[in-house]
Amino acid sequence: MKKATKTRLDQRASEDREVQHTAFLSLLKETDKPVEWSYEVWDEFVADLSHKNNRRRAIAAQLLCNLAKSDPQNKMVKTFPALLEVTRDERFVTARHTIQALWKVGVAGKKQLKLLLEGTQLRFAECESEKNGTLIRYDLLQGLRNLYDQLQDAKIKKLALELIETETDAKYQKKYQMLWKSV
């Protein structure tokens, strides 16, 4: 691992929000493509999913989603339930950042895609009664759209349209359909 990467990894745990945010953005950019150091930090990121600091939870979740493409050992298969749990975080901003990054797991392989689609379907159904349920649903569907744009897999579109059909409020159903209008 490069010294600069190690420094950013250390800084992501900084109490200084600006230092932490700058390190996070740099790591996010670096992990947009596969990296060789994923397993050097994997367990630490998994542990951070339940850290007392919600920013640490959000950073860990988003970076793990990005690291899914750097996971030839398929550790994400065991990690995914903990990642999905962060989509239910007590701090909505943490949950939302996780939901918005979650789709990246599905790009990593067939097993990960299966987990992601099942997890999305579960969260879509269970969030109906949550305080921000319609926003969660929108973000989940946006994630499916992002995934579809990457993989061009008809089963992703099929699932999204099926989920939209379960929405009972016509206003939100129409809003969700707009995500898929151009496909």
Rank of each mutant, 00 (worst) to 15 (best):
K174M: 08
E90K: 12
V107F: 12
A58Y: 12
L28N: 12
L9K: 07
N132C: 08
D10F: 08
A23K: 13
K75S: 05
H97W: 14
K69W: 01
L27W: 04
V41I: 12
I136S: 06
K110C: 07
V93M: 13
L9N: 09
I99W: 11
W103E: 07
A160L: 08
E30M: 04
D32H: 12
D32V: 05
H21P: 06
L163R: 02
Q152K: 11
L102W: 04
N54E: 14
D43F: 03
L163P: 00
N53Q: 09
D89Y: 08
V46W: 02
R17W: 05
K6W: 05
T120Q: 13
K155H: 14
R17C: 05
R96F: 11
R12P: 06
K52C: 12
A60D: 03
W37N: 01
L163S: 05
K175H: 05
Y138L: 06
E36N: 14
V107R: 13
L151Q: 05
G109E: 04
A95C: 02
L151H: 05
K69Q: 12
S26G: 09
H21M: 15
L64M: 06
A47Q: 08
L113I: 03
G143D: 07
S38T: 07
Q152N: 10
V41G: 00
A13S: 10
L84P: 00
K69I: 12
A125M: 14
E44F: 03
N54V: 03
